[in-house]
Amino acid sequence: MLNRGTLIYIAQRVVLIAFTVMVVSFGVFVVVHSLPGNAFISDRLHGKALQLLLHQYGLDQPVVIQYWNWLKGAIHGDLGISLVTRGAPITPIVLKELSVSAMVGGAALLVTIGLGVTFGVIAAIRQNTWVDYTLTTFAVIGYSVPSFVIASLGILIFANWLNNVSNGAFYYPLPWQGTYGGGGLSTLISLSLPAISIGLYTSGQVTRITRASMLEVIQQDYIRTARAKGLKSRRVTVRHALRNALVPVMSIMPSTVLGILTGVVVIENIFTIPGLGKEFVTSITQQDYNLTVGVFTIYAVLIGFANLIVDLLYAVVDPRIRY
């Protein structure tokens, strides 16, 4: 499968990703640097002292030159230094936050695909029954109720009503407050609420498209042939129908990934999960330029490669597709 053509295709895509990341980072760089004020506003410096500080961090140079300097570092994996903390290197910070966000986002992706594909297949098999109507309505509710509402309700039920209130504040056992990456069951439980809050939204769309494409595939001749051969109904559904029905489902995966990343930004701020989304909101309010640009850059790289993987998976699901 990984022949020469595929490799050339991957190489082209990687070049395209690099180009996108450069354009995105430049755009964000210009935007954050043209905001009024700067990261040192809390120091109440004026005149010469402020000028010296700006000079020390190279902020008095033209934006394009600053970007060029930043880009030279970024190519070597150095995303610059944080201004608010006066010089903490950003790359390790962002990578650690990425690992946290990836955990949340990965769990949300599992919820999305698990719920979405299961519900879609069941709804299609039981077309026009109450099961179908219930599941499709549930799908619309899923992408109509904002994730912060589901998250708040979850906190209300599990933290407030189920006796986890301590001193009138939330007690929601997050694995990453102090004991990040504790592992085991507690991580799983505390990850589930953020993951479900994010995943319900995206799973709604997956349910609908899975149902639609299953309905189309089920009517085809080769499914009837498989049935006529006397194959078990479940085997026909999973092996023959679902595999082909997954191709359209793959096509919405890029928008699913975007939906999950948006959800992660919101949910991390609700649960105070120290991930990329929370860092982004903090950094843009504090005008910590390099952090904002760094988070954007990581996201752009992430989305680029996520889309590349989706496109390569097409060929795995449907062998007729070649690159």
Binding site: P254, L258, V266, F296, Y299, A300
Partner: peptide
């Protein structure tokens, strides 16, 4: 534009 999360 599709390469960056819309909310950001």
């Amino acid at each position: 534009f599709y390469g960056v999360p819309p909310l950001l």
